[in-house]
């Protein structure tokens, strides 16, 4: 299947994108069977995500943005189309530990210290004790929580807890980071700060990031590519390649370029709504 699907894509796309697409979806459908009949969560979703991209998925609730992220993670199985992660099926990629996943809630274990929580995936994946310790201190440093390894989650603020959960997702060095509204429950000041830190982290680690959000400024500020989705059925309404530079101070949000992109995102969201 890989060769059958892969070869036409090479012809279709420019050589560069085809070679570096780490996530590639073509005509992905997902229909849930419910008591009220079938629900089309995703319809005909085709998208390539290149290595090192920061891709945001934005749209109203029910547009399938989280569902699509879960499909990439192998937590949901599409009912149609093909989806490849690092050239594997999502399920294979999950078993190959190809990605780290950050949920909306930090979901740290209250009975483990911050260090212990970051260590959790490493224990499960069977890293040696020495390597566990080395990696824990490295990723905690990366999210600015170096001194907090021995603290318990309840001793940390919500923003710090979410940073710890990002460290946990980074601990095992997956190339892909999938984030499902990770800052959705935080207040705006904390969110700004974390967005800035996330960009720095992305620049340093060169991960490919898939990021679900419902905030237009957040999507525009963070992304190299913004995927606007619309509901019933969940589908892609617009894909916007950001023209902003990779280096982004917070006040870039006042620039005309930023406002223009935000405007296009808003238009895309409105168009999606007008359809139903």
């Amino acid at each position: 299947m890989v060769s059958a699907d892969g070869d036409p894509q090479v012809l279709e796309h420019s050589a560069k994108t085809a070679r570096s697409a780490v996530i590639s979806a073509s005509s992905v459908d997902l229909t849930f069977q419910t008591n009220d009949g079938p629900v089309h969560a995703l319809k005909d979703v085709s998208l390539d995500i290149d290595k090192g991209d920061f891709v945001s998925f934005i749209g109203p609730s029910g547009c399938g943005k989280t569902t699509f992220l879960r499909c990439i993670a192998g937590l949901e199985t599409p009912t149609g189309g093909t989806l490849r992660v690092n050239g594997m099926t999502p399920d294979e990629a999950r078993r190959a530990r190809a990605y780290g996943y950050v949920f909306q809630a930090a979901g740290l274990y209250p009975w483990r210290t911050i260090g212990g929580n970051v260590k959790l995936p490493l224990e499960i994946m069977g890293y040696s004790k020495a390597e566990q310790a080395e990696r824990v201190s490295r990723v905690l440093e990366l999210v600015d929580l170096a001194g907090f390894a021995r603290k318990y989650p309840w001793q940390l603020s919500g923003g710090m807890q979410q940073r710890a959960s990002i460290a946990r997702a980074l601990a095992f060095d997956a190339d892909i980071l999938l984030m499902d509204e990770p800052f959705g429950a935080l207040d705006e000041i904390v969110r700004d700060h974390l967005n800035e830190q996330l960009l720095q982290l992305w620049a340093r680690t060169e991960k490919t990031i898939g990021f679900v959000t419902h905030s237009i400024p957040e999507a525009v500020y963070l992304s190299t590519k913004i995927v606007v989705m619309s509901p019933r059925p969940g589908r892609i309404a617009d894909v916007i390649e950001s023209t902003l530079p990779r280096e982004r101070p917070l006040d870039i949000r006042d620039s005309p370029e930023f406002i223009a992109i935000a405007h296009r995102v808003r238009d895309g969201l409105r168009a999606g709504h007008a359809d139903d």
Binding site: A73, L75, R94, F103, Q104, A105, L120, E123, I124
Partner: peptide
């Protein structure tokens, strides 16, 4: 569900899920 999904993203087995979570 979120806690269990997290373990699935690590491909943790049922025994690991039992002892760790």
């Amino acid at each position: 569900t979120m806690q269990l999904d997290l373990l699935r993203t690590y491909s943790a087995g049922p025994a690991q899920g039992f002892w760790k979570l």
